[in-house]
């Protein structure tokens, strides 16, 4: 094809596909959760892990909030033993990425009742996965408001009221309790 327009990379591209990836690493740089949304950017797990390693080495000491690496703009934030990253093209509005990072961090923080640390995260991994899914769908920002994200992700009612349990469930738990008390 020769009939193409001028390749001008100066302006941002009008697209909804803004997020190239999001990840949460622990304080050894191991992946706890990561999603990459562009099949042209880091397509294999091997490349992704190599990138994360590099990213972690560059960011875990200097808390500089933003770094350009391998053609990606990465904004990040850490707390205790967790590192949160959001990646976008090097040709993207940094502040949009920043807003996504804030949404991610805030929602996780609410989900974990402000105890943002690895142990809590792993205990609530299912809810965090749902939050991931609610923030970004295939690279499109789905929602960036922490309260509404949490509203859709934190669905576990901690202690189900008796009235809403099925008869079978009640019987089951009663049976269990009885069994344990006998065994003692």
């Amino acid at each position: 094809m020769v009939h193409t327009g001028t390749i001008d990379g100066a302006l941002f591209e009008p697209t909804l596909y803004i997020v190239k990836g999001m990840c949460i690493l622990d304080n050894d740089g191991n992946r706890l959760l990561a999603k990459y949304y562009d099949k042209d950017v880091l397509p294999t797990a091997k490349e992704q892990k190599a990138f994360e390693k590099n990213l972690f080495n560059k960011t875990h000491r200097a808390n500089a909030e933003i770094i350009m690496l391998d053609g990606l703009t990465c904004v990040y934030k850490n707390n205790v033993d967790l590192f949160f990253y959001v990646m976008g093209s090097s040709h993207e509005n940094e502040l949009i990425l920043q807003s996504v990072l804030n949404a991610l961090y805030e929602s996780v923080s609410i989900l974990l009742r402000r105890n943002v640390e690895k142990r809590m995260l792993l205990d609530n991994l299912d809810a965090v996965m749902l939050a991931f899914d609610e923030i970004c769908d295939g690279g499109v920002i789905l929602d960036a408001d922490p309260t509404s994200i949490v509203g859709r992700a934190a669905l576990r009612t901690e202690d189900v009221p008796l009235g809403e349990q099925t008869v079978v469930q009640v019987l089951q738990s009663a049976k269990e309790q009885l069994k344990w008390s006998l065994l003692k």
């Binding site: 100066a10 500089a64 909030e65 933003i66 904004v75 509005n93 940094e94 502040l95």
Partner: peptide
């Protein structure tokens, strides 16, 4: 905010 400073400096550099 670092992201803001980077955005500003980067655009000025261009």
């Amino acid at each position: 905010k670092a992201a803001l400073r980077l955005a500003g400096a980067r655009t000025l550099a261009r």
